[in-house]
């Protein structure tokens, strides 16, 4: 006699699988936006579970800013090989060369990846794009729907969202319009790590603590590499650090940590007192409404 109660992690997993299947059943041409970060990896892992023993019936798309850590690209390619899925790469560098977008003065390619994403969505005729966004990440995301309607400019209008009642999702769109789908809406950072540890999911080793050569810039620790070389007058040091988020290599900082195993990361995440974006992402510090603005423009 069992109690017939699912643990919270298995409930979240079941909800995400339900969402992923619903999109494949109702939409014409879905795609999964894959950044190589932990959230998109968890999403891809569950997509594989949703259709087993069949293959995932949609491609994944990587918006390649050209500022990737090599281990993130390696991890991406391992996933593509293992699952036998099609990978679409939308290159920001290529878009800069073609004049679609222009490099921003601060070196961040976060904002300019939006037009590249929208162009690739349109060119490939994708009408639904899975994103790894979570509602606990940020205030504007807390009010995001699971099925988030985007007009034919890819824009989000927070005042004109479709009501979402029970788990009856409405993915109906006109030609040119699309839906962004967030299967991880109800997951927190701690859930993601607990799940990665429980399922022993393959992630880039940047997330695990190890001794790395870093430079301290205004309290943020940047690894010394081709993207963030030492500037004149700076000195580097060897510290045990790990990455909490994996964004552009030139802007993502590491945090001091001894957590070199998945279990240790779960422990650390439960105890940590600062948000992952606040800790390590220069690109989110622009203004209080930075995320809301980017989402309105079509960011995911």
């Amino acid at each position: 006699m069992t109690s017939h109660v699912l643990s919270q992690l298995r409930s979240l997993e079941a909800e995400s699988i339900h969402i992923i299947r619903e999109v494949v059943a109702e939409m014409q041409r879905p795609v999964l936006l894959f950044s190589g970060g932990k959230d998109s990896i968890v999403m891809l892992h569950m997509a594989a579970k949703a259709f087993a023993p069949a293959r995932i019936p949609f491609p994944i798309m990587h918006v390649d800013t050209g500022l990737n850590f090599q281990t993130v690209l390696d991890c991406r390619d391992r996933w593509v090989d293992r699952l036998g899925i099609q990978l679409v790469v939308a290159s920001v560098q290529d878009a800069i060369d073609r004049g679609l977008v222009r490099e921003e003065p601060n070196g961040s390619r976060n904002r300019i990846q939006t037009p590249v994403l929208l162009e690739a969505v349109e060119k490939n005729g994708f009408d639904a794009a899975f994103g790894g966004g979570r509602r606990d990440e940020e205030k504007a995301r807390a009010k995001e729907r699971v099925f988030s309607f985007r007009d034919d400019f890819g824009q989000w209008d927070p005042k004109n969202q479709r009501p979402e009642i029970w788990s009856l999702y409405n993915g109906r769109v006109h030609q040119g319009e699309s839906i962004r789908v967030f299967p991880l809406s109800n997951w927190t950072e701690l859930d993601i790590w607990s799940y990665i540890a429980a399922e022993q999911i393959d992630i880039p080793d940047l997330y695990l603590a190890q001794e790395r050569e870093v430079v301290d810039r205004d309290g943020m620790l940047f690894a010394v590499n081709e993207f963030t070389p030492l500037k004149d007058g700076e000195t580097s040091e060897i510290r045990s650090v790990r990455y909490r988020t994996v964004g552009d290599a030139n802007l993502t900082a590491a945090v001091e940590s001894e957590a070199s195993t998945l279990e240790a990361i779960v422990e650390e995440t439960a105890a940590v007192r600062i948000t992952e974006r606040g800790a390590t992402r220069g690109d989110d510090k622009v203004s209080e409404a930075a995320m809301e603005d980017r989402k309105r423009e079509g960011y995911f």
């Binding site: 109660v5 699912l6 643990s7 919270q8 992690l9 298995r10 409930s11 979240l12 701690l190 859930d191 607990s194 540890a197 429980a198 279990e263 779960v266 422990e267 995440t269 439960a270 105890a271």
Partner: peptide
């Protein structure tokens, strides 16, 4: 790091926590 936080982490990974 307090005991409570450790317990939450453990409880979350071992699957003994349900959802409300």
């Amino acid at each position: 790091m307090t005991t409570t936080e450790n317990t939450t982490a453990e409880a979350l990974t071992d699957g003994s926590v349900d959802l409300l």
